[in-house]
Nucleic acid binder design. Sequence first.
DNA 1: GCAAGGATATCG
DNA 2: GATATCCTTGCA
Length: 191
Amino acid sequence: VRHDATGVDRIGRIVEVEAYDGPSDLASHARFGRTARTAPIFGPAGHLYAYLVYGMYDCLNIVAGPDGSPSAILIRAVEPIAGLDAMRAARLAARRSGARSTFLPPERLASGPGLVGIAFGIDRSWSGVDLLAPDATLRLETAHPADPPLAASGIVATRRIGVEYAGEAWAGRPWRFVVAGNRSVSRPVRS
DNA sequence: GCAAGGATATCG
DNA sequence: GATATCCTTGCA
């Protein structure tokens, strides 16, 4: 994920995601069909779907699947690579008034779905933007040559988090994918 | 352990 | 229109 609206690139590696698959997936926002909020999910892959959760945090998803097939990938955690000062500044700006700013070690600045939106300064107003456009402000890019792709064996699948409401048939599916041992994930998993 | 926080989908 | 619920976080 890269963001350079401020002139300072914020770059990170996605280290934790969850898959949400269409209207039949009772944990997916697509389960209610197409609405004003969820319209981007029903569009082409590679676009952003952002939504507000618990009245406080903006969560980021990457639309997946063919146009008209409402599936998406929730970005649950990102390992900061560059622009950490900008991420810290965004965290200060986003803190609730009256609340103290708590210290977070660098690797934890985006270690949760709500923290990802804060660190990169992305909210619902960004929902629908194309993350694959070369000149986009927020871009999804393949790994840098100096940052080789992870081996599939280093990725662990677990249950999705916070979706018990969907029932065990869906909540029990191993559709959360985590880089094993990575310190930037929301809830560490060992291989 | 739990309050904060506001949009959303659903039900009257 | 009212309300229960929500793909969380940072406090007590």
